[in-house]
Design a protein around this nucleic acid. Structure first.
Length: 191
DNA sequence: TGCCCGATTAACT
DNA sequence: GTTAATCGGGCAA
């Protein structure tokens, strides 16, 4: 039987939690798969939404850990984060890619594509496939419709620079599963 | 009040 | 490789 993760899993440094999320299974209403790519955002980080203080949009980031922060990206897409660290530290992990394992027919229909590699490989794509919207903002991660399950075995993790940002671009706070075919972008070779 | 721009994606050339 | 789509947050005035 798979082991459920609880909110306490997130009550640690965002830089500790982020790599440990790789290989964790995330389901929403039974649909989803293994997390294979994330990025960490800390409140002292100029690229973080919380950097300039609390606003109506980022309010959930300033709440307790183990909750979901959803925001609209480019006025078009939704992006999903998991809040970390103690209440008020305003740090979160952006979920960037998932390897689909549960509910593929539903995700194909929602996304309008058949290639499994295009279902959840990107923060906007996975929210469309799992139907994440503003109504999920502020929900707890250890209660329905969410379910998180611990890794079932060891995972090889690679680290790199975050994608799509213009501030603090030098921080190596992107984490992924080595050689996964479901990353939003490959990690640069590390020979 | 107005203006700029973004933790993106898909469809172009 | 380049660009349109599309809109609310954040900041200047």
């Amino acid at each position: 039987m798979r082991k459920h993760l609880t909110r306490s899993f997130f009550n640690r440094s965002v830089h500790e939690v982020a790599p440990e999320l790789i290989g964790v299974t995330l389901l929403i209403d039974g649909v989803g798969g293994r997390i294979v790519e994330v990025e960490a955002y800390h409140h002292t980080d100029p690229a973080a939404h919380s950097y300039r203080g609390q606003t109506p949009r980022n309010g959930v980031m300033f709440g307790p850990p183990g909750y979901v922060y959803v925001y609209r990206s480019y006025g078009i897409h939704w992006c999903m984060n998991f809040v970390c660290e103690a209440k008020g530290s305003a740090s979160a992990v952006l979920i960037r890619a998932i390897e689909p394992t549960e509910g593929l027919p539903l995700m194909r229909r929602r996304r309008g594509v058949s290639d499994a590699r295009l279902l959840c490989s990107g923060p906007g794509r996975l929210c469309e496939a799992m139907r994440v919207t503003a109504m999920h903002n502020g929900l707890a991660l250890d209660a329905p419709p969410f379910a998180l399950f611990a890794r079932s075995g060891p995972v090889e993790i690679v680290v790199g620079l975050r994608i799509g940002i213009t501030k603090a671009v030098d921080k190596p706070w992107r984490y992924g599963e080595k050689d996964s075919r479901f990353l939003s972008k490959p990690f640069p070779e590390t020979p």
